[in-house]
Amino acid sequence: MARSERTKMAAGEWYTCLDPELEALRVMARDAMFEHNSLPPRQRGNIGPALKSLLGVVGEGARIEAPFHCAYGFNLFLGDGVFLNAGCTILDTAPVRIGKATLLGPNVQIYCAEHHKEATGRQAGVEIAKPVEIGGNAWIGGSAVILGGISIGAGAIVGAGAVVTRDVAANTTVVGNPARPVRRG
């Protein structure tokens, strides 16, 4: 029996994102995000009800400001006190784990999906999903971009506008494109 595209995606193998099952899951996520992004703030609370029920884990006091966008939601794991500022986009084709008390500035982007290198593969929707892990008490500055397969250690700081293409050690500050260390400790 052939393995589903969702199973391949979860296993970190090449899969076709144009699959009907995956599209149905993305539609559910879009509906949840629409509710989250449309509710008045007092009614929405920290996270809109539909989005909160879709996410993999939502720690106590975790908050997502509107507008917010994700691909699936079920691959997003937020520790206690995590804060995602307005405009964050997380393409969670693989697990994205954000540790306790970590702050993401406005318009931070996390991209787990990597498209095929060949044009024919991209046209067919072939991609691979790579997880992202951000340790606790990290600070990701506004408009930073984090690519798939990246690990950012606890207490790290990613400067505004940085493009993170390599792992970041704990308690290290990185800035620039590509992001480079400027300070440790």
Rank of each mutant, 00 (worst) to 15 (best):
M1I: 08
M1A: 14
A2K: 12
S4E: 08
E5F: 05
E5V: 02
T7N: 06
M9I: 05
G12F: 02
E13C: 10
W14E: 15
T16M: 11
T16S: 15
P20W: 04
P20V: 01
E21K: 08
E23A: 10
A24K: 14
L25P: 01
R26L: 05
V27C: 09
V27K: 13
M28V: 09
A29L: 02
R30D: 12
H36D: 08
S38G: 13
L39Y: 03
N46P: 07
G48Y: 11
G48P: 10
P49E: 12
P49A: 13
A50L: 15
L51A: 08
L51Q: 10
K52T: 03
L55N: 03
G56T: 06
V58A: 07
V58P: 02
G59N: 02
G61D: 06
A62S: 03
R63A: 10
E65H: 12
A66P: 14
P67L: 07
H69F: 10
A71Q: 14
F74M: 08
F74A: 04
L78M: 01
G79V: 00
G79K: 00
N85M: 03
A86Y: 13
C88A: 14
T89C: 13
L91M: 13
T93G: 15
A94F: 10
P95Y: 02
P95Q: 12
K100M: 05
A101L: 06
L103T: 01
L103R: 05
L104R: 00
N107M: 09
Q109G: 12
I110T: 03
I110E: 06
A113D: 10
E114K: 07
H115F: 12
H116A: 14
A119F: 07
Q123S: 11
I128V: 14
P131H: 09
V132L: 14
G135R: 00
N137S: 13
N137C: 11
I140F: 02
I140T: 05
G141Q: 02
G141C: 04
G142D: 10
V145A: 14
I146W: 06
I146P: 11
L147M: 12
I152E: 09
A162P: 11
A162G: 09
V164R: 07
D167N: 15
V168Y: 03
V168I: 05
A169W: 00
V174Q: 08
G176K: 09
G176C: 09
